[in-house]
């Protein structure tokens, strides 16, 4: 497919919340163009969208980057926001610190980090209160290693 890692980066700016998803949509278009399988593209889209949403809602913006190598992709979201005081609490489905105004638009459901974890093979959060947060999520392309497919998990439960 290609040898060198492909890197794409966008700045996510505070402002209109309804515009969230621009960077994720561009990542999706890139992955489709690179011929990445659609199941992987959908998982990457969820990870990128939730990371983008978190950076905007909680940190007023940041940078979202995606690196694609022959065997995996990595999505990295970095911000200089307030940091996450309690990651275990933030990982709890339904827990959110988003404002009522943001929730009324359908954001801040407290499902962002769980959605990212469910759709990635590894997720690492490096956060410091008052300094910012860096989130790194990887998705491997090899089918044998893709045990954590979100949609596969849900299908198995039905």
């Amino acid at each position: 497919m290609f040898e060198a890692p492909y890197v794409e980066e966008y700045s996510v700016q505070a402002g209109d919340f309804t515009a969230i998803g621009e960077a994720s949509t561009k990542f999706r278009a890139t992955l489709k163009m690179l011929g990445i399988p659609s199941e992987i593209v959908r998982r990457a889209a969820v990870v990128a969208y939730e990371a983008e949403m978190n950076a905007l809602i909680h940190a007023g913006g940041g940078t979202l980057s995606m690196t694609v190598t022959p065997d995996h992709l990595e999505i990295r979201a970095a911000d200089r926001g307030p940091g996450i005081p309690d990651i275990a609490l933030a990982m709890q489905e339904g827990y959110s610190t988003a404002s009522d105004e943001i929730r009324e638009l359908g954001f801040g459901a407290g499902m962002g980090l769980p959605n990212i974890e469910r759709n990635s093979d590894t997720m690492v959060i490096d956060t410091e209160v008052g300094a910012g947060t860096v989130l790194m999520a990887t998705i491997r392309f090899s089918a044998a290693e893709n045990q954590k497919s979100g949609e596969g998990r849900q299908a198995a439960e039905q």
Partner: peptide, 17 residues
């Protein structure tokens, strides 16, 4: 089916096919 009517509805629809 939703009652959300802002631009991000399209982003979610695109990202999830």
């Amino acid at each position: 089916i939703t009652v959300q009517v802002h631009l991000n509805v399209a982003a979610v629809a695109v990202l999830k096919d």
